[in-house]
Design a binder for these strands. Structure first.
Length: 319
DNA sequence: CGCCAGGTTAGAG
DNA sequence: CTCTAACATGGC
């Protein structure tokens, strides 16, 4: 605890302890309202895609995560309840600013502020997506509020299968990320750009990064550490301008830029048109003999105009 | 062993 | 602007 709390001061003066713990629990609670079209089980499924994920932990339907907020380390759990998410801060009470940050982080992470009704209305009778949005009602884009982390993860996943991408990420986070042990579990944070900027191929090649991935990631970290790129600089730009800025960095092509625009900036019309998984999903659902060409993808997506990101999410879900 | 994977770049036409 | 080779390595 930091700062003076008159109630706790009175309490400590009285010499009790059980009451203090109880009181702390109440103090460190936070509630987030969730919209109707939000599926907790589907969100948890997504978060548990890989057993190698170290940046959050799911246990008994609760989500645990450690975040750095300026110079604070905040460990919290998210407890889904009927129409809200209950957030408990563990270890210690965060500052007011950090509390607000966590609250907006979670809202962004699960995209709780998007009204999905227009999308559901648009594709209700769509031959391809209609059945999917019924089956996976309330499935939302789990985003990545941190632009740097979003881009590094996208580069890690370029041209390799997702299983191996998670292996690389696990090694990267274990070796270079800060960790905190609490209640017999280890929580990790993504390696900060300032640290990664100082690495070299000699550090990353042993983790089985290709020379290309190693270079892309180090240069990306340098760009963030120097302030050359930041979420703040790109926030609010029109989609095409933001994409152009991102693609100036080596290793960020059209696919990666769109991925970040979709997962971090949440442009509803951004989507990775070149994505292999998307192509396979379309091929399967259409019963095509081979994967669609880029022109065919563009043509198909005209009917999802304004909701391309969510259309892509449900195509991926079909795989 | 072969094919593919949540691609990107540099270079040629 | 489009097409191609090179990159690099695990998963299945």
């Amino acid at each position: 605890m930091t700062g003076f709390n008159p109630i706790l001061a009175d309490f400590y003066a009285a010499g009790g302890s059980e009451f203090a713990l109880h009181y702390l629990c109440i103090m460190t609670s936070l509630y987030i309202d969730i919209p109707d079209a939000f599926s907790v089980p589907l969100t948890l499924d997504f978060l548990q895609r890989s057993p190698r994920e170290l940046l959050h932990r799911i246990d008994n339907g609760r989500i645990y995560k450690l975040l750095r907020v300026v110079d604070e380390r905040v460990l919290f759990e998210i407890v889904p309840e009927d129409n809200l998410l209950h957030i408990n801060f563990l270890i210690h009470e965060p500052s007011v600013a950090a509390t607000q940050y966590i609250k907006s982080y979670v809202r962004e992470w699960f995209d709780l502020d998007t009204d999905l009704q227009p999308f559901y209305h648009l594709v209700a009778h769509d031959k391809l997506l209609g059945p999917l949005v019924k089956q996976y009602f309330g499935y939302r884009i789990v985003g990545q509020p941190d632009l740097y982390e979003s881009l590094v993860w996208a580069v890690l996943g370029q041209q390799i299968n997702l299983t191996f991408a998670y292996t690389l990420k696990q090694r990267f986070v274990e070796q270079f990320g800060e960790r905190l042990v609490w209640d017999a579990h280890t929580y990790y944070m993504f390696p900060p750009a300032e640290d990664v900027a100082l690495l070299s191929d000699a550090d990353l090649l042993p983790l089985q990064f290709s020379r290309q991935k190693s270079q892309y990631i180090i240069r990306l970290a340098e760009a963030f550490a120097s302030g050359e790129i930041s979420r703040e600089k790109l926030q609010g730009l029109p989609l095409e301008q933001a994409k152009t800025q991102l693609m100036k960095v080596k290793g960020i092509g059209n696919w990666t830029a769109n991925y970040a625009l979709m997962k971090t900036f949440r442009y509803p019309n951004a989507f990775p048109r070149e994505d292999a998984g998307l192509h396979n999903a379309i091929k399967n659902l259409q019963g095509m003999a081979s994967k669609p060409t880029l022109d065919e993808v563009s043509s198909l997506f005209t009917r999802y105009k304004g909701w391309e990101a969510y259309a892509t999410l449900y195509f991926w879900k079909s795989l």
